[in-house]
Design a protein around this nucleic acid. Structure first.
Lengths: 169, 169
DNA sequence: CTATAACTTGGAGCCGACTCCAAGTCAAGG
DNA sequence: CCTTGACTTGGAGTCGGCTCCAAGTTATAG
């Protein structure tokens, strides 16, 4: 076997869906380690570097700001997280964020399903239970969601977060 | 019964978790309709307005840019979506986005779980059943996870999204 | 009567995350 | 030798989404 394949920045951009400019930018702000260069100064990437970029891309999708990614990247490939207790806390807390984000998203999906369902049978009043109509054609994902009174749960949820209601002073 | 309760912008901000400034900003860019004013010019909000703001807040959590929200807000409370076929398409396609976002997020959760699991045995002083504390109030979804080779699925996924691989020209 | 507080307005400023540009280097082709 | 193209660099510009500010209005309390 050979010396492990390498990629130009252009190929890397293509593979990761992150633009060349952006990759350079990430390197500039040291979110990515300085890539190795060829003799002519051109960057070269190998699989590991690509994985890192993909991790960034994935974390980005979770809405995480670049700055907050640094610790995650440190632990990226093969580090033992236990060596960085702070990091563990970080991971845990971001996990919570994500889980709650997922539920937020699920609410929106429910909301959309409700709306779509509504339109599907032409005019109909009241919150009738929605459910699968649409959801099966989607990703083979868990439909889970007990489809609660969507509209209510949807709108009620964040209200409580702000604490109070009586103390509207 | 009385004339339906109204709220000041401050109260509204508190309830929705969106700052007064931001609420005014949303009105400024016409993401929100111009709120009614009292005689002294102060904004007043009622339940429906608050719902709209909460919808924005929820959509924001899905990473949707404000501009893209406009159609959603149009259909917000009680419009029949069937009257706006374009909109239905929009809804459908955003639903796709969200579903795929959810799976992205789930991957990150898996990644984190994997990392945490790895470190779990080294060090233990924290509540290691932490996750449940939140998940019950969340989706109420069980761990469900198909527990695939996380690392692999994680890193392989987005590569596939870009289509690529063979066409690294 | 004055001060405090809760609002109003328009506009400026800020930050994160790119995105674009100019100027330069190097490698291969006609 | 000159051009083309893929890259390099540093730095400037852009855009979305706030966030802050100053100046002004009105309401209530001391």
């Amino acid at each position: 076997m050979q010396k492990e394949q390498t990629f130009t920045i252009k190929q890397t951009a293509k593979q990761t869906g992150i633009s060349e400019d952006t990759i350079r930018y990430y390197e500039k702000i040291a979110l990515l380690p300085r890539a190795d260069r060829k003799d002519n100064g051109h960057r070269i990437y190998r699989q590991e570097g690509i994985h890192t970029i993909q991790l960034i891309s994935c974390l980005k999708k979770t809405g995480m700001p670049l700055e907050e990614m640094r610790p995650f990247l440190a632990v990226s490939a093969d580090t033992d997280p236990a060596e960085y207790p702070e990091l563990v806390e970080h991971l845990r807390s971001h996990r919570e964020n994500i889980v709650s984000q997922i539920s937020s998203l699920q609410q929106v999906v429910d909301f959309i399903d409700m709306k779509l369902e509504e339109g599907r049978y032409r005019r109909r009043e009241g919150p009738d239970e929605v459910q699968d109509g649409v959801s099966e054609q989607m990703t083979g994902k868990p439909k889970s969601r007990p489809a609660s009174p969507v509209e209510m749960s949807f709108f009620a949820s964040s209200a409580r977060a702000g604490k109070s209601s009586t103390s509207v002073e």
